[in-house]
Amino acid sequence: MSISARRSLLPLLLGAGFALVPVVTGGDVYTVNLAIRIMCLAIAAIGLDLILGYGRLVSFGHAAFFGAGAYAVGILSTHGFTSAPLLIGAAILAGAALALPIGAVSLRTRGVYFIMITLAFGQMLFFTATSLSAYGGDDGLSLPARATFLGTDPFGSPLSFHYVVLALLALVYLGGRAIVASRFGRVLRAGGEDERRVIAAGFPITAYRLVAFVIAGGIAGLAGGLYAEFTEFVSPAYLSWQRSGEFIVMVVLGGTGSLHGAVLGAAGVVLLEEWLAEFTEHWRLIFGPLLVLAALAGRDGLARLLGRGTR
């Protein structure tokens, strides 16, 4: 099978797999909810893969934009807004709007500086969320009602929620693929390989990276907004740096720079956590060393083990 055929086959299989989850399980609520959770996180991971996988910028603040989207939905809901397009639109906007100034400052730097600074700004937003005493502070806030759309209840049942999120995941994935293949994506990818070359070719690379950073922020905002609708709850924990780390783990283990790898990674991490947690509450004692081994084996080692020949 040619590489290009594989590249379109695996995403198709993934999509079909998610579509069939409710059918195969007979609408089992636990499994469907697990799939929804995976898909929400997968959307955010796709956003991260754009900048991390293609732009080779290790952003450690991705959860902040995820959380911004969640809080946008949470806060608007408590003020009585219920229109799904409005809430989800606000979530995207919140993620993107925060990514703009943070990206503008962070992208002035490189390497470990960039990692630390995105981490620090993520933490800043985390603490900001904990200080929002009107919206629950440390404890977070519960959504009074789920969003509606033209009199319907898209997030009302696990089943319809599942397919709405799947449709959005597909949209984000296809949009991401278009961006990667576009003129813009070409500059971003080239910059990931050799920044000096791209500047010498005549591109102000930072501007391209900033736009990519903002797009990634918007996608994370979308994911966070959906996640808030899913859990009917928002808390500062959504913005924690451990969650940013988890997003990185998803993208890396799934294989950077393929987009569907991010989906695979999200599924892998969530399922692994669920599975390990069945054996012991201290499942991180196993998960942590696994990450160390994956890093030592070479970053894509585990990706190769999990999904042989996906790249």
Partner: peptide, 27 residues
């Protein structure tokens, strides 16, 4: 074993160490 490697590898490994040690202390 991670000197000179991509920063992403270092992030992944040391993140794993954090998860492990925090949990070990909890256990």
């Amino acid at each position: 074993h991670l000197y000179g490697r991509d920063h992403l590898d270092q992030v992944l490994a040391t993140f794993g160490i954090i998860l492990f040690l925090n949990e070990a202390v909890r256990a």
